[in-house]
């Protein structure tokens, strides 16, 4: 299980990354944490001509927190985000989700950006990005553009990034309302396995306890993290009672076309995804009400 031959360059700046990428037109690949790319290369399922190592590029590292958003630079380690007290305070759902990404040792190398670009259907970070409609900033020699999460993922393991582009940061918006709550649930076989299905929900309530804004997303059971807008719409303005939630979720199963693999079939993922949406919604509701911390 040894990688095929490749060339290696260590980039020192974002400009250099972009330059290398443009010169190598599709033959080069960025390596960040390597937690996905290295095993793929070991099995020779990926065989780039050149690896561009971005681990020394300081401008791609760091966490910035404002009232409105949490900005994470692409090459920031997952463990750094998970350990950040500020992130936990501002965006606890991200911390919660991150604790499910692999384990300590993979998080010590794996990056937030690498996970997003890798676009695994089960990836927790992608799920949260889609939930909050995070904004991905990408750079190339052609310039900079910002891609909303809704347009970032195109199918399993594929994003809408062009071959010469580098993801530089992701900006997760923070909802301002005080009565905001979130829920995150996933099911995996062993504790640190990829999720067979996952769901996240965030909602806020107005003073009368009615749902004023809501986002629901399913992962693992679809090729890319999927927003469940029909359910969201039905629940807007409701009291989020158990019955209302149940009714609003009725259409979910037919919307999902999960993939099957050795670990679970499509029916399993479909059913379990629904269960997890229900759990996530209820947790979100209780947190918004302040009755769950």
């Amino acid at each position: 299980m040894k990688a095929a031959e490749f060339d290696y360059v260590k980039a020192k700046s974002l400009d250099e990354i972009c330059l290398f990428l443009s010169q190598q037109a599709g033959e080069a690949r960025i390596i960040a944490g390597g937690q996905t790319l290295v095993p793929l290369m070991a099995m020779r399922m990926a065989r780039p001509n050149t690896l561009i190592d971005i681990n020394d590029v300081e401008e791609l590292k760091g966490i910035e927190i404002t009232k409105k958003s949490v900005i994470i630079k692409a090459c920031t380690r997952q463990s750094e985000v998970l350990e950040s007290v500020d992130v936990r305070r501002s965006l606890p759902i991200l911390s919660d989700a991150l604790s499910h990404v692999g384990h300590t040792q993979t998080r010590n190398r794996g990056t937030v950006g690498g996970s997003l670009v890798n676009a695994d259907p089960s990836a927790e970070i992608s799920l949260i990005a889609r939930l909050l409609d995070a904004e991905m900033t990408v750079h190339s020699v052609r310039g900079e553009r910002v891609i909303k999460a809704a347009n970032f993922f195109s199918s399993a393991m594929i994003t809408n990034l062009d071959a010469d582009e580098c993801l530089t940061q992701v900006c997760f918006p923070i909802w301002s309302s005080v009565r905001t709550g979130f829920g995150f649930h996933e099911t995996s076989i062993r504790a640190s396995d990829y999720a067979l299905a996952s769901a996240a929900a965030q909602l806020s309530l107005d003073s009368s306890g009615q749902c004023r804004s809501i986002s629901i997303v399913i992962g693992g059971a679809t090729e890319i993290p999927t927003r469940i807008s029909e359910t969201e719409e039905q629940l807007m303005g409701s009291d989020l009672s158990d019955t209302e939630i149940k009714t609003a979720m009725e259409k979910i199963p037919e919307m999902l076309e999960p993939q099957a693999d050795v670990h679970a079939d499509a029916d399993y993922r479909r059913r379990v995804a629904c269960v997890l949406v229900g759990r996530a919604l209820k947790d979100a509701r209780e947190r918004a009400k302040g009755s769950l911390v």
């Binding site: 067979l196 059913r271 379990v272 629904c274 949406v277 759990r279």
Partner: peptide, 19 residues
Amino acid sequence: MRVRDIEALLNGNVETKIG
């Protein structure tokens, strides 16, 4: 007795469930 076997045994004929 894998998760999917147990789940299918319990819910194989159920459409939706809410946790």
